[in-house]
């Protein structure tokens, strides 16, 4: 059996382990093939246009090659990768001061001074996806990314604790705040 075929049959975690020890570009190419479109589509959610999403994707894969050794296997590789992607995109959005000024409608604060509400997941799941997409664009990218990790990428509380390096109560509070912000943004959309 040829080596490339062998690489195609192994799990992400085994592939990454081999990549960390060998740094073989061929192994990285296999990882790229598995995730390029997924990473690109996640970048599209944070980028102004397709060109910016392509540039972000290119940079993310380069940084991934450099930092792949920091994957410690505390969560599934895909969950770790998506967190890595969101971190990169959030930093990019926050760094882009021009866009911050342009998007002055962002910074949607929770409840306009009202106390945080406990929003059950069942209420969140009643939201319409296209309107939800617009609401997610209204809130801070950090809040958007934790919601996407939890509800789109199925990261568990334990995963989020490891990825964000914070405790369980802090994760739950960040989720609660993010849910409040997105629901408020959703109901304030015209």
């Amino acid at each position: 059996m040829s080596l490339p075929l062998l690489h195609k049959r192994i799990t992400d975690e085994k592939l990454v382990k081999k990549l960390i020890s060998s740094r073989e570009p061929e192994l990285f190419g296999e990882l790229y093939d598995r995730y390029a479109d997924k990473v690109f589509n996640k970048c599209c959610g944070f980028a102004i246009d397709l060109q910016e999403a392509e540039d972000l994707t290119q940079d993310i894969f380069l940084l991934l090659y450099i930092k792949i050794g920091s994957f410690q296997g505390r969560s599934k590789f895909s969950t770790w990768l998506y967190s890595f992607v969101y971190n990169f995109c959030v930093n990019h959005v926050n760094r882009n001061k021009y866009r911050k000024m342009k998007d002055s409608s962002r910074n949607f604060e929770e409840g306009d001074g009202n106390p945080l509400q406990e929003i059950p997941d069942s209420s969140l799941f009643e939201l319409k996806s296209q309107k939800l997409k617009k609401a997610l664009d209204q809130i801070e990218p950090e809040d958007k990314s934790i919601l996407l990790l939890k509800y789109q990428d199925d990261a568990t509380i334990k995963d989020l604790m490891a990825l964000l390096q914070i405790g369980e109560s802090a994760v739950k509070m960040r989720l609660k705040r993010a849910k409040n912000k997105v629901v408020n943004a959703y109901h304030n959309l015209k």
Binding site: D37, V39, E54, Q58, F61, L62, L136, Y151
Partner: peptide
């Protein structure tokens, strides 16, 4: 609804692969 945010997934242009692998 978070699973239905991206109903039309986009494909990354194939030429990006070469650029990434050159950078790598």
């Amino acid at each position: 609804p978070f699973k239905n945010l991206n109903t039309k997934p986009k494909q990354l242009p194939v030429e990006i692969r070469k650029k990434v692998m050159d950078d790598v």
